[in-house]
Design a protein around this nucleic acid. Structure first.
Length: 746
RNA sequence: GCACCUUUAGCUCAGUUGGUUAGAGCGUUCGAUUCACAUUCGAAAGGUCAUAGGUUCGAAUCCUAUAAGGUGCACCA
């Protein structure tokens, strides 16, 4: 066939995503339109336009892009492109996260593997230097991969959790909370990781099922059960429920003499409701130093607390002859001794229970009592200037009350709705938050000691002899500041005033308790405001059979492979269509392949529309009026625009993508184009001109509606159009819901 | 144990405040086609809406119970 003059050469082949995507990426980058300031400067966005802002949940600097990231990027980019086209002053702010514990342990592992050294051999300064080299080298990877999804992030505002502005924000936040009495140092029971030698937050603990022998021991007149006989040396309190009739004869505070592992001891009876009458014999002994529940019982009754196991899991002198051995090795020897003494009643070999492990690559958790820094969530403080409904400026409140108020009042809306319940459940049960970590990589606690003096401040105190607290802050402490530390806080910047609170926080539902909760806490206290108006929680990406993607199952689908094979547009669509908000998504390679066909379909539709136009190159004149029939078809496309907008506004991106997909393929291509063929080949020039114009207008509307979902192919087409309203589709005007008049040239 | 989610065609899912004959994509079968299409188009088959009750003129949709699958939390000393 003779190619028409209207058809650029590229269109004579199928759509080649690999070839086009690179070109389009650099086109966007050069345009600078991801930066809202550039949009205002170039007149694309009105200077006083409403703002729409999202702060990207920062991926780990040392990580690589997985499907979860890809889904997040696709969803956020759709929201961003849509609002940008609608004329909002739109900011999507990128960043990366240092992921303190995970990153440090990676570097430490490599250090040990390659040089057989530990961090103590090389020291704090050297270790931090190596971590820095490591993160610098790997951050380019994740940034490049992020860009390849087509993410229209404003890289001129890039932030890293460990850079200088964020450091200042973290220090300032700590000092302010310290001065308000919300941060305190105390000896409390914490989750201790003996392997990584650090505390771990409650939320980072993962319970794993494990089968162990369960021992029943004779403790005076009682039988007690335990999986961990090695913790029992110090047990001198025996606890039972106050209503337990079986033990009514024993009075609270009464003492009894009995024979125990290392000889006779005096035990004291404690009546406490924490004892479960249904479990075992209903009697337990407690080890307050290594169990949260036991610690709380001990605190309620003012009992003695003795440490049994040290930081490395070694038994202390209280263990008598077992002192100095590791708990793992000591257990069997202790059981042997109990047996000899006749204290072992029986053993249940297959007892299934949950053990706490550190989900951040550490080992088993050993509760310990430690001097740590905490954020008191139930402590009263005087609220400053407040915009949070229900928490008046200057009133007395607590962090917990403030966090509840933010969501109860709907100032922060969480979608889907049922996650609100989960939020309330979480916040309601929140305990004081342990924020100190005994690792080296992170924001060091801004507290200095000199003898008994303590000083807290952003800068080190003047004069010699001061020593800084060696601990660093929990990574979530700085993450909690993310929506405003990235905008320049603690400075009162224009960005902060313009874009905060952010419009939407979009993240996986699994991270709600860690992050969303902490951001509301930090923003509430430090700014007296919410961090975002809406929280949009997406589901997890699973494999075709609904299983989690994991290395061991070998079912990981790598987004970069998909981009390579089928294009970024197809990858994006496969992560959005069929992904009902908050529900998990089953992804298979076939799905991605299917959407590649769609990208090609759009390409070919364009080819047809251009081919069937007159050689003069689609310059419509007033004489090229559409007839009523064709006008109605254009109006139909605009009605579709209203539907798409409605679905996006309701966060139903799956429906929005689905209706536009269906329209473009099965209405526009299969029906409207097919029906127009006879006229296009016919002799009636007036009818033909009307058709040509109708097809072109619908093509334009379709490209615009598709653009947020599949930005590459639509932009590539836009670049080849002979007549267009803006240099890039990215900043073209979103189609109005109802078209006022059809007689203006496009 | 507590809470939440899911259950609609072979598969993946829509179904908006209850309202005609429950829809789409993929897959299957049949047909057409190389005249925009690394093909595409048309048509067909396929559903006791998990189960049992209830509310209602009317229920996939609301209520109660049950079952199966999943997730989170709590944990058992």
């Amino acid at each position: 066939m003779e190619p028409s003059k209207n058809v650029p050469e590229d269109f004579l082949k199928p759509y080649n995503s690999l070839e086009q995507e690179d070109k389009i990426l650099s086109l966007w980058e050069q345009s600078g339109y991801a930066n809202p300031d550039v949009c205002v400067e170039k007149g694309v966005t009105a200077a006083d336009a409403e703002t729409f802002s999202i702060v990207l949940p920062p991926p780990n600097v040392t990580g690589t892009l997985h499907m979860g990231h890809a889904a997040m990027l696709a969803i956020e980019d759709i929201l961003i492109r849509y609002h940008r086209m609608k004329g909002y002053k739109t900011l999507w702010l990128p960043g990366t996260d240092s992921a303190a514990i995970a990153t440090q342990s990676k570097v430490e592992e490599a250090l040990y593997k390659e040089e057989k050294k530990t961090r103590h051999d090389i020291g704090r300064v050297e270790l931090l230097k190596r971590i820095d080299i490591f993160t610098e080298a790997s951050k380019e990877i994740i940034i490049d991969q992020t860009k390849r999804m087509g993410s229209s992030l404003d890289w001129s505002r890039y932030a890293y959790t460990m850079d200088e502005p964020r450091y200042r924000a973290v220090m300032t936040a700590f000092v302010r909370m310290y001065e308000a009495g919300l941060i305190y140092r105390g000896d409390r029971i914490v989750n201790w990781d003996p392997k990584l030698q650090t505390t771990v937050s409650d939320e980072e603990i993962e319970y794993k099922e494990q089968t162990d022998p369960f021992y029943y021991l004779q403790y005076g007149p009682f039988q007690i059960g335990t999986v961990r006989p090695e913790t029992k040396f110090g047990d001198k309190y025996v606890v039972m429920h106050p209503d337990d009739e079986r033990y009514a004869q024993y009075k609270h505070g009464e003492t009894i003499e009995l024979e125990w592992i290392n000889g006779p001891i005096t035990a004291t009876i404690i009546k406490d409701e924490a004892a479960d009458m249904e479990f075992g014999s209903g009697v337990m002994t407690i080890t307050p130093s290594h169990s949260l529940i036991d610690f709380e019982i001990a605190q309620r009754h003012g009992l003695d607390i003795e440490q049994v196991i040290d930081d490395r899991g070694i038994l202390l002198p209280i263990a008598g002859e077992f002192a100095g051995s590791h708990i793992k090795k000591a257990r069997l020897a202790i059981v042997e001794k109990l047996k000899e003494k006749g204290l072992l009643v029986r053993v249940d070999e297959k007892y299934v229970h949950n053990v706490a492990t550190n989900s951040r690559g550490g080992g088993m958790i050993e509760p310990q009592i430690k001097r740590q820094w905490f954020v008191g969530v139930n402590k009263e403080f005087k609220m400053g200037e407040s915009k949070i409904p229900g928490i008046p400026s200057g009133s007395m409140t607590t962090l917990k009350q403030m966090m509840l108020a933010a969501v109860e009042s709907d100032a922060v809306d969480i979608v889907p709705d049922h996650f609100k319940k989960i939020y309330f459940h979480w916040v309601g049960n929140l305990r004081d938050w342990c924020i100190s970590r005994q690792i080296w990589f992170g924001h060091r606690i801004p507290v200095w000691y000199k003898g008994k003096e303590i000083y807290c401040g952003v800068e080190a105190p003047k004069g010699g002899g001061w020593e800084q607290d060696p601990d660093v802050l929990d990574t979530w402490f700085s993450s909690g500041l993310w929506t405003f530390s990235t905008l320049g806080w603690p400075e009162n910047t224009l960005d902060l005033r313009t874009y905060h609170p952010t419009s939407v926080l979009e993240t996986g539902y699994d991270i709600l308790p860690f992050w969303v909760v902490r951001m509301i806490l930090m923003s509430g206290f430090l700014l007296g405001d919410i961090p975002f108006h809406r929280v949009y929680l997406h589901g997890l990406v699973r494999d075709g059979q609904g299983r989690k993607m994991s290395k061991s199952l070998g079912n990981i689908i790598n987004p970069l492979d998909m981009i390579e094979k089928y294009g970024a547009d197809a990858t994006r669509l496969s992560l959005v269509i069929g992904a009902q908000i908050g529900n998990d998504l089953k992804l298979s390679e076939d799905r991605v392949r299917g959407y590649k066909h769609f990208a090609n379909k759009v390409w070919n539709i364009t080819r047809f529309v251009l081919e069937s136009s007159e050689p003069r190159g689609l310059t419509f004149r007033d004489s090229d009026l559409m007839n009523a029939d064709d006008e109605e078809k254009v109006r139909e496309a605009h009605r579709l625009a209203a539907d798409v907008s409605k679905h996006i506004d309701g966060f139903r991106l799956d429906l929005a993508a689905d209706v536009v997909y269906h329209f473009v393929w099965h209405r526009f291509a299969d029906e409207i184009i097919e029906e127009s063929k006879a006229v296009l080949k016919g002799d009636d020039a007036v009818l033909r001109a009307s058709k040509q114009r109708m097809l072109y207008e619908i093509l334009i509307v379709s490209l615009k509606l598709l653009h947020p979902f599949m930005p590459f192919v639509t932009e590539a087409i836009w670049q080849e159009l002979p007549q267009k309203e803006s240099d890039v589709l990215m900043t073209a005007k979103w189609p109005a819901a109802a078209k006022a008049s059809a007689d203006k040239p496009v």
